[in-house]
Design a binder for these strands. Structure first.
Lengths: 373, 373
DNA sequence: TTGTAGGCGTTATCAC
DNA sequence: GTGATAACGCCTACAA
C-alpha cells in the first residue's frame, strides 16, 4: 500500500551509528537515564550532536510500548441526552480534566461510542474499550452497573464523577448537592417562604436523591426538627409541616415534558405555596417544566413567586443565568477526578472529594407576596 | 517498583491460551484479517468468546508500532492563551468533531501538552505524540511549521482547522473570513458610514490576514473599485478613499492591551470615522481594546458610534452577544475536519471546505450620527 | 487452517 | 562506562 513510512524517521540505531556508539548508549543519553548511570561527557556530546543533525525524535508508540504504560486517561460518558446537545455535555468538566491531565503528563481519550445517544453506550462491550487507556473517568446520571462492576473487579482504575455507590469499590468524586440544596431552601425560608415545592425528575439518580435530601434537610433545619413531606405525583398534596409551619412537597415529573400546567401552578399558590425549586439534571427537564408552567400561569419571579434551581441553568437558557441556585465547580471536580485517578494509577488510595457548591443569590427569589394569589 | 500493572490488561497471548490456539490466530481473528485468510468458524468463535470473557482490548501503542490502525483520531491545539481560559478554547469545535467521529466509529485523543500554554507545544517532539493516533486534527492561530512539515512529509494524515498555507501539502478546512468580513463592512457602508477603521492584532495569522482582506474588499466593493488604506500604527492616518468617498484604515495593536485610548477614539471621530470594526482572535484582544477605548471615551453604540466584530464575542463577555458581526460555524467546521481526515485515512482526496459564516445583525451598529462629535 | 519466527523502536537488565 | 540481549504487544510473511 503506502510505501511504508520508513526513511524520514531516524531511529536510535542510526543515531548510534553516526555517533559511533551502541544503540543502548543512545537510549541512555537521550532517555532520562533514570538508572543514574554515568556517561562520558564526550560520548554524551557526540550522541546529542548526532541526534540533532539527524533530527531524531523518539517514537511515541515504541516509547509507550516499552514503558508498558500509555499515559492515556480515558473519558467515558453515559449520557441520556445527545452529546452534541449543548444542554448536556461534560465539556465544562473537561477543562479541568484537561488542565490537570496535562499537568501530570497524560493525554486524554474521549470515547465517543460512549455518548452516541444510545447506539454507543448500550452496545455491549462499548465500555470495555476503555481498557485501552491506563485508567478512565466516568460521567453520567445512570451507569450500567454490570459491565462497570466487571471493570472494577478486574482492578481497572476508574473514577466516577458524581456520587455513585451502586458499584462496590468504585472510586468517585462528587459535589455536595445535599448541603448546597439545603442552603437554597434555607435562603427561601429566611426570605419568609413557608410552603415550598420541589420539582424533580422521576428517576432515582444519586444526583436527584441528594438534592431531595438537601431539600428536606433545609426544611427540617428551618422547621427546627422534622423534615418535609413524601414523594407524590403531580397531583399529590403537601407533606407534613414542621413546627414553625414550614412545609414542603416533592413533585416528580412522570414524563419528560409538559407535565406541569398553569392550572397546577395556580392551584399550588392557592394552597399557599410561594416558592418553587427545581433540580438541575443533564436535560434540565425539571427546571424547564417549572419555568414554563409559571410563565404560562402569567406569574413573574421574584415578585409574584420565587423560583430557585438546584444547580445552574442549562447553557441554552443563558437568560436564566440569574436564577437563584448554586454553582457546581465543574472544572474543579474534573481536576479532582484526574487527581484521584492518577492516585489510583500510582497505587495510592485517593482521598475522598466532596466539593462545595457556591450559593448563587440570583434574582428569581425574594420575599413571598404579601397578598395571596 | 510498582508490581507492574499487568493483570487487568489481557494480551492476545492470554486469549490464545484460553481459546487453546496460537497467538497468531487470535491476531487473525481479532485484527482485521486483511489478508483474507479463512478460519474455522469454531476456532473463530472460541477466540471471540475468550476475548470477550477476558475483556481483551488491543494495545494502541503496540498496534501503531506494528503499523496498524487504532480507530483513534488525534486533536492537537497550538494555543496562545491558556487552554483553561474560557476566552479561548476549541471546545465549540469539539462538539462537531465528537459527533462526526462517533458517527464514523472513531474515538478521540486529546493531546494535552498541546495546549499547556508553553510547556507542551514548544517541547520538541511534543507534536510527535500524535503518531499514536491514526491521524490528527490541528487547531491554532500559529503553528510550528518545522515539526509539522515533518509529519506531513512522512505522510501522516493531518487536517488543520482554519486556513493554513505555510505548510505545503497540509490539508485544511476553514471558514470564509474574507466574505464574512466584507459583508460586515458592506453592512456598515449601507448604513451610511463612510470612514471605517479596522482594529487588528499585530501578528500575521491567516485568520487575521483574511479578515483584513475582507475588510478591504468590502470597502472596495462599496467604493466601486479601489480598496482601502494601508497598514498603520495606532497613530497612523487614513488610507486613500474610494470613489464614493468610502475610506478605511487599519490599525494594528502593538501590545496586547491598553494600546487604544479614549483620546485616540475621539481623534478618529473628529477625523470623520463613524464606525469601528475589530477582528476576533482567540484572545479577543482587538475587540476588548476597542470596546474599552470607546467606553472610556464615553461613547455608546449604536447611537454615537457603530461597532462591529469580525467574528463572535469571547465567551467571557456574554453581554457582547448582540455585537454586530458574524458567527463561525464551529461545530460544522469540526465535523468537516473529521470528514476530511477520514477521507485522508481512506486514501481519498478530501474535498476542500470553506464554510460560510452567518452574518449577525446585532445591535451595535446603526446609521452614523448626523451631527459630528 | 494453524503455528513459528522475525521485526516495529524503546527501555531495562546484565555482563564486559 | 558501554554494549549485547531480552522484553513490550501486535502484525505478517512463511512454514507446516
Amino acid at each position: 500500500m503506502t510505501e511504508k513510512k520508513r526513511r524520514g524517521r531516524p531511529r536510535q540505531a542510526e543515531v548510534a551509528r553516526l555517533a559511533g556508539v551502541s544503540q543502548t548508549t543512545v537510549s541512555l543519553v537521550l532517555g532520562g537515564n533514570k538508572q543514574g548511570i554515568v556517561i562520558h561527557e564526550d560520548t554524551r556530546r557526540r550522541v546529542l550532536e548526532a541526534a540533532r543533525t539527524l533530527g531524531y525524535v523518539p517514537d511515541p508508540a515504541a516509547r509507550r510500548l516499552a514503558a508498558a504504560q500509555n499515559n492515556l486517561l480515558g473519558v467515558f460518558s453515559f449520557t441520556a441526552t445527545f452529546p452534541t446537545d449543548p444542554a448536556h455535555s461534560y465539556y465544562p468538566f473537561l477543562v479541568g480534566v484537561e488542565r490537570e491531565a496535562a499537568a501530570r503528563g497524560f493525554d486524554l481519550v474521549l470515547f465517543t461510542g460512549s455518548s452516541t445517544g444510545g447506539a454507543g453506550a448500550e452496545a455491549p462491550g462499548a465500555l470495555e474499550r476503555v481498557r485501552l487507556a491506563d485508567g478512565c473517568l466516568l460521567f453520567g446520571r445512570h451507569v450500567p452497573t454490570g459491565p462497570l462492576r466487571r471493570l472494577v473487579e478486574d482492578g481497572f482504575p476508574l473514577v466516577h464523577v458524581g456520587r455513585r455507590d451502586e458499584v462496590e469499590g468504585l472510586t468517585w468524586v462528587g459535589a455536595d448537592y445535599v448541603a448546597a440544596s439545603a442552603e437554597v431552601v434555607r435562603h427561601l425560608v429566611a426570605a419568609g417562604h413557608r410552603r415550598v415545592v420541589l420539582v424533580r425528575e422521576d428517576d432515582d439518580a444519586p444526583a436527584s436523591t441528594d438534592r431531595e435530601a438537601g431539600f428536606r434537610q433545609g426544611l427540617a433545619a428551618a422547621a427546627g426538627g422534622e423534615g418535609a413531606g413524601g414523594d407524590q405525583g403531580v397531583e399529590g398534596d403537601q407533606g407534613a409541616g414542621g413546627e414553625k409551619g414550614v412545609e414542603g412537597a416533592v413533585v416528580r415529573l412522570r414524563a419528560p415534558a409538559e407535565e406541569l400546567t398553569a392550572d397546577w401552578v395556580v392551584a399550588q399558590r392557592a394552597a399557599g405555596v410561594t416558592a418553587f425549586v427545581a433540580e438541575e439534571t443533564d436535560t434540565g427537564a425539571a427546571w424547564r417544566a417549572l419555568r414554563g408552567a409559571v410563565a404560562r400561569a402569567g406569574l413573574r419571579a421574584p415578585d409574584e413567586v420565587s423560583l430557585a434551581l438546584l444547580g445552574s441553568p442549562p447553557p441554552d437558557l443563558p437568560a436564566d443565568g440569574e436564577a437563584t441556585g448554586f454553582d457546581i465547580p465543574r472544572a474543579e471536580l474534573g481536576a479532582a477526578a484526574v487527581r484521584a485517578l492518577t492516585d489510583l494509577l500510582a497505587g495510592r488510595r485517593p482521598g475522598g472529594t466532596l466539593a462545595r457548591c457556591a450559593f448563587r443569590p440570583g434574582s428569581t427569589t425574594g420575599p413571598p407576596p404579601t397578598a395571596t394569589t
